[in-house]
């Protein structure tokens, strides 16, 4: 079946077997191998990508279900060839040892920071609690996220903060992405 979505800003139109997982599309069809397969059953988070700005596990998501969506992978977050503060902090602070969980960990952290620019340690830990790292014991991962936040705070103080374009228009669900300007806070009920 025909499936169309954007991956890292690039429109893609693919003829897919309906049983194709998003992970297979990314790794095998598009050769975006930064997204990893660690457990293949949604228990480790190594395949975390953003679908319409929300974290999702590519190993447990049919590609066809993402028709119309905006997909962001680890390869798509650097701006103009420069790694983001989060990526650089993972390198600097020891947040990446073997590196296999790193793409998923960075994407999960990015989803958090896009949503909540000033998280507590507890909120960072909660947001990363579906991502298993076997190397670090998470101490340096937490430090990496904190360091990225500190850098962002420093940059903001210097008036250099740029809104993250990929964060705009975040919505829940995996279907078509809404127009960028259509974001609004979740409706209040009652």
């Amino acid at each position: 079946m025909t499936t169309a979505f954007t991956v890292n800003g690039q429109p893609r139109r693919l003829e897919l077997d309906p049983a194709t997982l998003l992970l297979e599309v990314l790794r095998e069809h598009l050769r975006l191998t930064g997204t990893k397969c660690g457990c293949d059953d949604s228990s480790c988070g190594a395949c975390t990508v953003l679908v319409n700005g929300q974290p999702a596990l590519a190993c447990t998501l049919l590609a066809a279900v993402c028709d119309g969506a905006r997909i962001t992978t680890i390869e798509g977050i650097a701006a103009d060839g420069r790694l983001t503060a989060l990526q650089r902090a993972f390198g600097r602070m020891g947040g990446a040892q073997c590196g296999f969980c790193t793409p998923g960990m960075v994407m999960a952290a990015k989803a958090l920071l896009d949503d909540n620019p000033d998280p507590s340690d507890g909120e960072i830990q909660a947001a990363l609690s579906g991502n298993i790292c076997r190397c670090t014991g998470y101490v340096q991962i937490l430090a990496s996220v904190r360091a990225a936040l500190a850098e962002a705070a420093g940059a903001a103080a210097a008036g250099a903060a740029q809104p993250d374009a990929a964060a705009a228009g975040g919505r829940r669900g995996f279907g078509p992405a809404p127009p960028r300007q259509a974001t609004k806070p979740p409706a209040a009920h009652g």
């Binding site: 975006l32 191998t33 930064g34 997204t35 990893k36 992978t73 680890i74 390869e75 650097a78 790694l83 990526q87 650089r88 993972f90 390198g91 600097r92 020891g94 990446a96 040892q97 073997c98 590196g99 296999f100 790193t102 793409p103 960075v106």
Partner: peptide, 14 residues
């Protein structure tokens, strides 16, 4: 780590 950018960018090949 000298190979950190390869890990954090997703570019490194396993």
């Amino acid at each position: 780590m000298v190979d950190a950018p390869r890990k954090t960018s997703g570019a490194g090949a396993y």
